[in-house]
Simulated scan of single mutants.
Amino acid sequence: MLLENRTAVVYGGGGTIGGAMADAFAAEGARVFLVGRTPAKLEAVADRIRAAGGQAETAVVDATDASAVNDHIDAVVEKAGSVDISVNVITSEGLFQPLADIPTPDFATAIANSLTAQLITTKAAARHMVKQESGVLLFFGGSDAANINAGMGNVQIGFDAVESLRRQWSVELAPHGVRTVTLLTGGVIDSFPDVPEMEAARQSIIDASPLKRAATTADVGAVAAFVASEKGRSITSTQVNISFGACYG
């Protein structure tokens, strides 16, 4: 298995994307620690992983609380011996409106919360990875220089901001053997709410791809597991495009 004897921490592990990554990590042999705010969602993913024969533990932690995040990651390392993979899929609250219509405080708060959570969780994992001289930090969303979609509001801006953080982490952590990789997405269609209003959005994502296909949660998990594994050891300080060609990073 690709991730046997590895330890993975997934912030936002109770969500659709985080859960898909956790499933894939566990299926490849990793011991997975799911972190989030909603116990029922975390336990649902953990139960699914255990039923498939994997190892999963959960913890309710506010990713914007540095003390709580650090206490948790220290406990993970004490229990598992290391933290080999850390991924935070907590993103800014999506405000899908024209920028001119978004109240300034709402925009600023959403972006600030996302960046704060990313900075805190990455710092916590990096502290241990630097000591180990190894580890993989995964990010999700990515920066699409060709984005021409109106009405995206703060969503792509939030992804761009997180990607800027990732680039800076790359520079600072590479000398310590820590890899940093972003999964660049054009939209994961089976993560959308199953309502008629989302059909047009799903189709637009498919239409944007030269192959007329769109990534699924299973695709996200499969690529994340490969990138985090030793087979992906040459991939760092970059984005991995999982958009079927719809994005241009």
Rank of each mutant, 00 (worst) to 15 (best):
A201L: 15
T180G: 02
S209L: 03
V178H: 12
S191I: 03
G177Q: 11
T185M: 01
T180E: 15
T180N: 15
V195N: 14
S191K: 02
P196E: 02
D207Q: 06
I206F: 05
T180S: 13
Q203P: 07
D207A: 11
D207S: 01
V181S: 09
I205T: 15
I206R: 01
P196W: 00
L184T: 04
A208F: 00
L183T: 02
T185H: 06
S204R: 11
S204T: 05
R202D: 06
V181A: 01
T180F: 10
P193F: 00
R179H: 00
D194I: 09
I206N: 01
P196H: 12
V195E: 15
L184E: 04
I206Y: 04
A208V: 01
V188W: 07
V195D: 07
L183P: 07
M198A: 08
T185Q: 08
D207E: 06
E197V: 14
M198I: 12
F192Y: 10
I189D: 12
E199D: 15
R202M: 12
T185V: 03
L184A: 15
R179L: 03
V181Q: 05
S209Q: 00
G187I: 00
A208P: 02
V178M: 10
S209I: 07
P196V: 02
T182W: 13
I206T: 07
R202W: 08
D194Y: 08
G177Y: 01
T180D: 13
E197F: 15
M198V: 15
R179D: 10
G187R: 01
F192D: 08
